[in-house]
Design a protein around this nucleic acid. Structure first.
Length: 511
DNA sequence: CGCGTTTGACCAGCGC
DNA sequence: GCGCTGGTCAAACGCG
């Protein structure tokens, strides 16, 4: 593609305009955004300090425009004009411009025309991209359906299907069924389906989530499902629905991620807003179970259950279900990615058979019962539990030293945590265990967990190490993907981005 | 008055 | 079919 008009300002020959117009621009890097370019251009035209130079540029631009050649001609004119500006500093130029004040108006009008043309071009490009995206999206849906049909006939699953399953399990609501395909800006869904894409960022995905998901739902099912939500009382149930073509292939309807953390507080601040909609006395537990629903957005399908452990009431068990259909704050995003990774790995390691889930050989590399991440196949829904409460057992490290490597390495990416007396699971021999019932420690850990995307990755790495999932598992990589909390890919080069996964909510509630 | 919580009722799934 | 249990609803209530 030809360089857009804004890019002309980035050209070395045009870079001088920054130094000429404003001292602030001297510090601008060459890789300015388009928005900044627009600002710079405006500054150029309306600067009172460089009338003469501007006049020169104006004249050149108008001349190019008079040629009535295409916009690229105009662009070249602007670039050339900017280049020439660096060469003129004589007073004769300025006086020459003052003799032609009308050129300013003409130039401004021409510039407006040029900008309008640029807008039209960009608009047409965007429309074209949208069309291409829709077409690819349709192809992807068709291919996925074909693929699923083939697998159903073949009687086996693969990782691709696991990802679909993970998406379906983590999102019982209608909006999440296709979030797995959350588009990157490349629009190449089939390619992204096979390989991780670093372009997925949770925040930017969230920004695009609602309209894109809506559109995709229309494509997928032929009608707009966005209006459906938990208000559709039958939605969360296991009853067959319009999604029968998907659920019928997977006996497990949805997965849950349970987080055990010590907290004296009755409720956890996990970055999301929750509304309590019910409370029940669960069997075998004197503590009631509270039911919460995400209220950050209308129709958000995420729910969570909060209950204290019957054996140890300092342990708060929070179970998440579903994924958000709205942008998340950074803290919530980090946790959402963690639980999403956990759920995805749960499903990646499993098959759709409950027998395999409950089999003692389910985790070949799991040489011991892991208190950090456990699975429950007996529950109505497959549940992965992230236990952040238990004390370390040095014997476990001795029994399987190979499992030591990933998690401490991942934790090393969280320097701010190493100085805190925190503990995650059983894999941190160098870190003292969290003191039971210490609110400050709990809060510190919670804050660290909820605000640090690196710890999210560390947690995912720990789970990965326990489950014996290869680190290059794209699903695992998702934990590092898309959190908007400053977790730039450059900070974690070993964990590239990956296709979008459902944003399940995560709770480390210790508010 | 609006919003969130409480709480009893209702419904569905599951086991016997 | 019945009872148990989990999950959800919705009216009542409280609070700012």
């Amino acid at each position: 593609m030809d360089r857009p008009p804004e890019m002309a300002l980035l050209h070395p020959s045009a870079g001088d305009i920054f130094r000429l117009n404003s001292g602030n621009f001297d510090r601008q890097p060459d890789n300015l955004t388009g928005r900044q370019h627009d600002m710079i251009k405006e500054m150029d035209f309306f600067s009172e300090n460089h009338t003469g130079r501007r006049g020169k540029a104006v004249r050149l631009s108008s001349q190019d425009h008079d040629s009535k050649d295409g916009s690229m001609k105009i662009d070249a004119g602007i670039s050339t004009g900017l280049h020439l500006l660096t060469m003129n500093s004589s007073g004769s130029e300025q006086s020459q411009v003052e003799k032609r004040p009308k050129n300013k108006l003409i130039a401004l009008k021409m510039e407006i025309v040029r900008i309008s043309e640029e807008n039209q071009k960009l608009r047409s490009m965007f429309e074209q991209l949208t069309r291409n995206y829709t077409a690819l999206q349709n192809q992807l849906v068709l291919k996925m359906r074909d693929h699923q049909q083939q697998q159903k006939e073949g009687g086996k699953t693969n990782m691709s299907n696991h990802r679909l399953l993970a998406q379906q399990l983590m999102d019982p609501g209608p909006s999440g069924a296709l979030d797995m395909d959350e588009p990157s800006h490349s629009g190449d869904h089939e390619t992204r389906e096979l390989s991780p894409s670093p372009s997925n960022n949770a925040d930017e995905a969230s920004d695009n989530m609602i309209p894109i998901t809506r559109k995709r739902q229309i494509v997928e099912d032929g009608f707009d499902q966005t209006s459906q939500s938990w208000e559709a009382k039958k939605g969360p149930k296991l009853t067959p629905s319009k999604n029968t073509d998907q659920t019928s292939e997977f006996p497990i309807r949805k997965a849950r991620v349970s987080v055990r953390a010590r907290s004296e507080a009755p409720m956890i601040n996990d970055g999301c807003q929750w509304r309590k909609y019910g409370q029940k006395m669960a069997k075998g537990n004197p503590c009631p179970r509270a039911y919460y629903r995400c209220t950050m957005a209308v129709g958000c399908s995420v729910r969570k259950q909060v209950q204290r452990c019957a054996e140890d009431k300092t342990i708060l068990i929070t179970t998440y279900e579903g994924n958000h259909n709205h942008p998340l704050p950074p803290a919530a995003t980090a946790m959402a990615n963690t639980t999403s990774a956990a759920a995805t790995m749960l499903l990646s390691c499993s098959t759709t058979s409950k027998e395999s889930l409950s089999s003692p050989t389910f985790f070949p590399s799991l040489h011991y019962p892991s208190p950090l991440a456990t699975l429950s196949a007996s529950a109505p829904f497959p549940t992965i539990t992230l236990d952040l409460t238990q004390t370390p057992n040095p014997m476990q490290f001795q029994r399987n030293p190979s499992l030591l490597t990933p998690f401490p390495m991942a934790l090393s990416a969280c320097p701010q945590l190493l100085g805190q007396p925190m503990y995650l699971g059983t894999k941190l021999p160098t870190v003292p265990p969290m003191q039971c019932g210490n609110p400050s420690l709990t809060e510190a850990v919670t804050a660290a967990i909820t605000t640090d995307p690196n710890l999210t990755a560390a947690l995912a790495a720990a789970i990965t190490s326990i489950m014996g999932i290869p680190q290059n598992n794209p699903n695992v990589n998702n934990t590092n993907n898309g959190n908007g909390n400053g977790g730039s890919p450059s900070r974690q080069p070993g964990i590239p981005g990956s296709p979008q996964i459902p944003q399940s909510c995560t709770t480390f509630t210790t508010s």
